[in-house]
Design a protein around this nucleic acid. Sequence first.
DNA 1: TAAAATAGTTGGCAAATATAACTAATTTAA
DNA 2: TTAAATTAGTTATATTTGCCAACTATTTTA
Lengths: 157, 157
Amino acid sequence: MSKTEESRLPVGTQAFILSKMYYGALTKSLEKLDIERYFSVLYFLHNNKNCCQQNICDELKIDKTAMVKVMDYLSKAGWVERKTNPDDRREHFISLSKKGEKQTKEVVRSFKAIDEKAFSNISETERKAFFKVMFKVCENLEKLPSDHLTFNYKKSK
Amino acid sequence: MSKTEESRLPVGTQAFILSKMYYGALTKSLEKLDIERYFSVLYFLHNNKNCCQQNICDELKIDKTAMVKVMDYLSKAGWVERKTNPDDRREHFISLSKKGEKQTKEVVRSFKAIDEKAFSNISETERKAFFKVMFKVCENLEKLPSDHLTFNYKKSK
DNA sequence: TAAAATAGTTGGCAAATATAACTAATTTAA
DNA sequence: TTAAATTAGTTATATTTGCCAACTATTTTA
């Protein structure tokens, strides 16, 4: 199972595999809820109050037209509410509803439980170092020229 | 940009973001090719001879019905060939064609170039430790009960 | 104050993901 | 040793996602 440096998968591929397994486990552990998608958005909203859709798009690298559908789904299910920002009426503040707030606690618990299990045999030091590198890699990747990426403010033609 | 331990995203979410940025950059850097998808499969085939479709599915966590479409796409484009394994005629060995072999070198170069840039300001030691943790996390996640995951041999009902 | 940029929306299309049901070949276990 | 179970690959289908172009409303800029 262990790979040599030569044959190991590229970091992007390995990260994608990790995320697929992670969401498989997460979705399984949350199947009793009345929604079955977009848990990462709820996690984000739990930690970020008064953000608008574009903020979520930027942080989670989700396309803004996809975000409309996410919000339709979550507000229809009664988890989130959209409120126009009075100081910039283009923006819609997104907040968890009473129900969403309550249920999201369960979502966050599941996320943390799976993180816990994912790092079960890994020391605190190693885990911190791992995330430090992960953030650096993301920062580096953000600088590279990129295709169809998610925040389509301006078309490159 | 740096996160506290409390507010940082779950590892699965962060890995997914990383992979989206990674593939954005990769796709951009390979846009001159006559294919525009499934580069990770080609990378895998470059390092693994005489594998059948299921091997690729298992390693890259891709559903086997999706793999059929991947193989249709790549063989139609003339990059790969399917050959029945004479020792187990259920299996189709997948190999790179002459053209695929040649072009995949370019794909592998691009992967390695982006990995290089992704880890540009990260030491060799840190990088190795990072991948070690990444593999451990994947191993841990593999053990968890999981939904609709990709290798659907047996239905859990 | 006209032009440019931004937040969000809509509609459409291609691709990704998952399920169910199938064929053919091989392995297993009674 | 053969009937049952499993496996590799395929087909068909439905749903979701990702991306683009075009649009409205609002705010920023020059």
